[in-house]
Write a protein that binds this DNA or RNA. Sequence first.
RNA 1: GGGGUCGUAGUUCAGCUGGUUAGAACGCCGGCCUGUCACGCCGGAGGUCGCGAGUUCGAGUCUCGUCGGCCCCGCCA
Length: 576
Amino acid sequence: MRPWCAALGAEQISDTVELVGWVRRRRDLGGLVFVDLRDRSGLVQLVFEDDMAAEGEKLSGEDVIRVVGEVRARAEGQANTELRSGEIEVKVIELELLTESETPPFVVEDDVNASEELRLKHRYLDLRRPKMMANLVLRHRVVADARRYFDEMDFLEVETPILTRSTPEGARDFLVPSRIHKRSFYALPQSPQLFKQLLQVAGVGRYVQIARCFRDEDLRADRQPEFSQIDVEASFISEEDIYALVEGLFSRIFPIVGIEPPATYPRLAYAEAMERFGCDRPDTRFGLELIEIAPFCEGCGFTVLESAAAEGRVKGIVVPGGASLSRKQLDALSEFVKPYGVPGVLWFKRTPDGVASPAKKALGEEGVERFLAAAGAAEEDLLVVVGGREKVVFAALGALRLHLASEGRLIPEGRHDFLWVTDFPLLEWNDDEGRFFAMHHPFTSPRPEDLELLASDPGAVRARAYDVIMDGVELGGGSIRINNPTVQRQMFTALGIGAEEVQERFGFLLEAFRYGVPPHGGIALGLDRMIMLMSGRDSIRDVIAFPKTTSASCLMTEAPSGVDERQLEELGLKTR
RNA sequence: GGGGUCGUAGUUCAGCUGGUUAGAACGCCGGCCUGUCACGCCGGAGGUCGCGAGUUCGAGUCUCGUCGGCCCCGCCA
């Protein structure tokens, strides 16, 4: 095989090699022409001299060429330490222009900042940039190592259907019309959930799949309509087995980028995570934890606080050194929290000149002092307080905490925190629909000691569910599943799904469970987010070869698109 | 569904309170150049100011609408 460009080094000196690749840049000195040749591995410098100089002059950016040349050491002091192949260069003896390139719409180099729109339209050029190619390489290495890891642990990779049936609950499905069965639709899987459970009934015992999942919901920097999971399920296991399995996996793959996770991760109950961080996927790399304020509000003399404490929750954050924030900056904090459904923040300051707060008139100097003392605010500190319904208070302060940390650059460079969040609620009340929904999914096992609450106080039941969090990003989540048909029926009852609907939607699962279902559980890890964190990017688009825009289109293929009338007819469909 | 922000040479951007011929850098084209690696020097071409209305004597600039990119809320695990 031909060598890769960047693989050439001192060992190949005086070898004659054949190279292929793309012309990255030409430096034409007249009778002497240098060309950087690029392939997946990187760059090597070609030299066209004497008779060949005229040949080299004809080349331009992104032309595809084949050369035969002699590897030689660069002269003293002319090595390029920026290049892996910088000690050598290749004196070209023979040149073949395989294909000429038109001038590309943007220069194919790492530090050229073409708009993402343009990069997505010409994704093949974008991927040619070394940083993007490195992301593809990293992704491959992680997947390859993960597969090796699970193979060593006796897991079996099994493919599950992409054309499957629509199930209620969870995200909106992508639907695929059936030509053969008019008015019937397949759905693309939101995850292989039911199949991986059925594989346990089948006796696979330990299942893994790099699975593509589809969810028709609005997009974000970390959300694409199709994404990949490292999907895992096993029989006869407990939470502890899953934790150890995932910790073992991460210890294998994170070192690829120089991150060494601890052998085991701290565990945090959901309720505690919410109280301390206002978030079920806390970033624990910095402080600014939430403080309970409500006990100091009763009878304090400031009606807003009194009623907030009586009807909901009041919590705050102490910002060390935050007393220096200007009025304008404090107003901005209020603006920041408004979208989360609270009226704003109430602030208290302790400065050398005394205390300050918009509530000072109502509370008096002593009142303000009492709040600051209760929150443990030192001189020059700022206390911000938010009151309202529990859900919005947590949402507002959880978001504000992250905002303050990034504004104040409070996250230590190079630090990475891994942790498990456990004991999630089994069910979550939905106001719009007026019923409970499964927080994880309807097959998640309640904790046995909470089982009796399922009928009386469904919201209080804790689940045998867990999420693995890194740096405030949810990398994955899973649960021990229900393997008792009676409990499963109780769960459906709590969800308000009638017996008939259960039979129609999930009959096949319940039937399977009649024939010997092993206790089982699993987890799904977000591969794209994992690669994003490993490569230090802030969007999963950068680690997916051909991603969609935030409006779910592909700028390269212009998908989605209209189709022929005839295709619609065959499917028995009419568009409006 | 809602909010914010951006859209001007091939690219990244500048363009003031509306006013003559819309600029810069990089890229591109031509010329010179034998040790460059962001090569250098000289010269040149290149514009549907996203699109559509409106206000105005006059719109890149103001107003409304619309399309597209990005970020966030809702939604989604």
